[in-house]
Nucleic acid binder design. Structure first.
Lengths: 246, 246
DNA sequence: ATACAATGTGTTTAATTTACACAGTAAATG
DNA sequence: CATTTACTGTGTAAATTAAACACATTGTAT
């Protein structure tokens, strides 16, 4: 691939795979994953951040990530980071976007794939022994290290969109939750206020909540009923949605 | 990074960036981009494919892609591929997803970032001199090389979703188009039939089409009026859409 | 002149979304 | 134990949006 830079496109492409098969030259692009780990606690949407260990960004917070191993699937790398940090497996994890600006990392070329993860903060014992690791209210997340602010903003926006179209939010709640919990969650994610009666009507009309015939405990007021989400029923019904609107 | 594989997570992460800064070792993951180039012609949604040059996949069609250069932004690499193939710049291009299964490429580890591109087939003189490069009706795209079928399916689904929420479709049409053109486009992308009157009502009520006071030419029937899309007006109005439904 | 194949337009009905108020219940207080 | 407090739980009317549906008009081709 000596003449890589100056061949015409088709020639170049045709010779690519020949080169690739031999791996004569590696382009030196490092690949990493970054996990944007969301949690819901104290009626607020939180994100898990770690203090940057680069002097350039000392004092700043950054996302949790690591390089991808040569023989590791991308998703597996994201799961690995997640498990290392939270001790959790079997959590919601979704690829969001890949960030590959040449100078995004001060140490050299690193392309990173961002993953959004939603975890239930009750279900885990975080390794927050490490006092460099903290939950942050998403409303106060600013000025992250690297291009992590941009990555975070992208993930939060995608979460806001997707939570309205898919039952992602339940990953952030305990298995049993009240409708108030659910509404608080949506209000925290979307950063808006919703009408309580219409919110209930909406969810009841979807007919995807299972009434557990149990009540909240230890609340300082009239307890609400508890529900769980009917994932099975949701899995069966495929909604093919058509509605042009922009 | 001698002990990379057996350190605990936090230690490992802390040592990562030290290693990175020196680039002592490259993990040997190649990075590529693949462009899913859509066009609209003969009232059909088309995708541009090239014959695979790998013997393993001989006879099969594949997407257009190339390795990313070490000092090239990801988006720039996608633009480069696109320009080489179509001669077009200033076209719609959007990152869709990244595919990184270890064994997705027979020649070794290659992670690829998929980009969706929408081009106006009138506006370009394709280098289809190369008879290995062809437009294919998306309905008949099956059994692509590598994992390209999966990538293609992902991109088509994303296009179907996004075209309903954003004015992407106009990138596939000439600047001047009739409402029938527009409806044909949506029907081709979504693979459904739409009611003509409701379709018109919908678009007129958005008030984003500019009536050009011109008529179609050379049609073998009553000509329709021509419109263009009001990108400027669309850019100004930000719709913050809330509607939980799944 | 006529047949043809489109364009262009409106209304009625159903479905969905929004706005909005009051009674009921458990816990906490004195 | 009576009262206050702070929630839960429910229904209806109005407005908006989406869906179904038919006929007159215009230019082309014969």
């Amino acid at each position: 691939m000596a003449s890589r830079e100056n061949k015409n496109g088709i020639q170049q492409l045709k010779s690519r795979q020949v080169t690739l098969s031999g791996f004569e030259k590696n382009y030196g692009i490092e690949l990493s994953v970054d996990c944007i780990i969301f949690g819901f606690d104290e009626e607020k949407l939180k994100v898990l951040l770690i203090r940057s260990d680069l002097t350039k960004y000392s004092g700043k917070w950054s996302l949790l990530g690591d390089l991808v191993f040569p023989s590791e699937d991308l998703d597996a790398a994201a799961y690995r980071v997640l498990k290392q940090r939270t001790g959790l497996s079997d959590v919601y994890l979704e690829q969001v976007s890949t960030f590959g600006t040449v100078s995004r990392h001060p140490a050299g070329r690193v392309v990173t794939v961002a993953y959004c993860s939603l975890i239930n903060v009750q279900h885990h014992k975080l390794n927050i022994l490490d006092n460099e690791l903290h939950w942050h209210d998403v409303k106060s997340v600013t000025d992250l290290a690297f291009d992590h602010q941009q990555i975070f903003d992208t993930c939060l926006m995608q979460l806001q969109k997707r939570v309205q179209e898919h039952p992602l939010g339940f990953n952030l709640l305990p298995k049993k939750f009240s409708l108030r919990d659910l509404q608080n969650l949506y209000e925290a994610i979307l950063n808006i206020k919703l009408d309580r009666r219409n919110f209930r009507k909406k969810f009841f009309s979807m007919d995807l909540l299972i009434d557990l015939d149990e009540m909240e405990q230890d609340v300082p007021h009239r307890p609400g009923k508890l529900y769980k989400f009917n994932f099975e029923k949701y899995g069966k019904k495929k909604k093919s949605w058509v509605g042009i609107d922009f």
